[in-house]
Simulated scan of single mutants.
Amino acid sequence: MRGFFEGVQEFAEATLFAPFNALAEVELSNWWLANGVNWIFMLICAAAIVYWIMEIKKYDANDTEYREAKAHGFLGKNSELESNI
């Protein structure tokens, strides 16, 4: 069993963690490049947030969302909602 777990360790260190080891080498050699990778990830996240907010505004502008306080059955009975069903 020891050989099996050492094989798993070798596979994880050599293959699965290779990208992390490469980033560690980049960080040691060039600080600006390592932080550039972080900025790229932050820009991707910012773009996703802007897209999400634009989609929310689009659905809000259509005014198709049912905003009654008792829109869900588990919150209580709503006579208007039940009459439409």
Rank of each mutant, 00 (worst) to 15 (best):
C45A: 14
A47F: 05
F74C: 05
A24G: 06
F74I: 13
A61I: 01
F41A: 06
G73S: 11
K77S: 11
E27F: 01
F5R: 12
K77R: 14
G3S: 12
D60W: 06
L75K: 07
A22W: 01
A14S: 15
A18K: 15
M54D: 09
N30S: 04
E13C: 03
I53L: 13
R2P: 00
F17W: 05
N30T: 03
I49N: 04
E13Y: 04
I44W: 02
W32A: 11
V26R: 13
W31K: 09
M54C: 09
M54H: 08
F20H: 02
F5I: 10
G76H: 06
D63A: 15
Y66K: 06
K58G: 05
N30G: 00
A22M: 03
E25G: 03
K70C: 01
Y66T: 01
G36Q: 05
E82K: 04
L28R: 14
F41Y: 03
E13I: 09
I44Y: 00
R2S: 13
L33I: 09
A71C: 07
L28E: 15
L16Q: 04
I40A: 02
A61Y: 07
A48T: 08
A69C: 03
V26P: 03
A14R: 14
A69V: 09
V8K: 10
A22T: 14
S79H: 03
S29M: 08
I53E: 10
N78P: 02
R67T: 13
I40W: 01
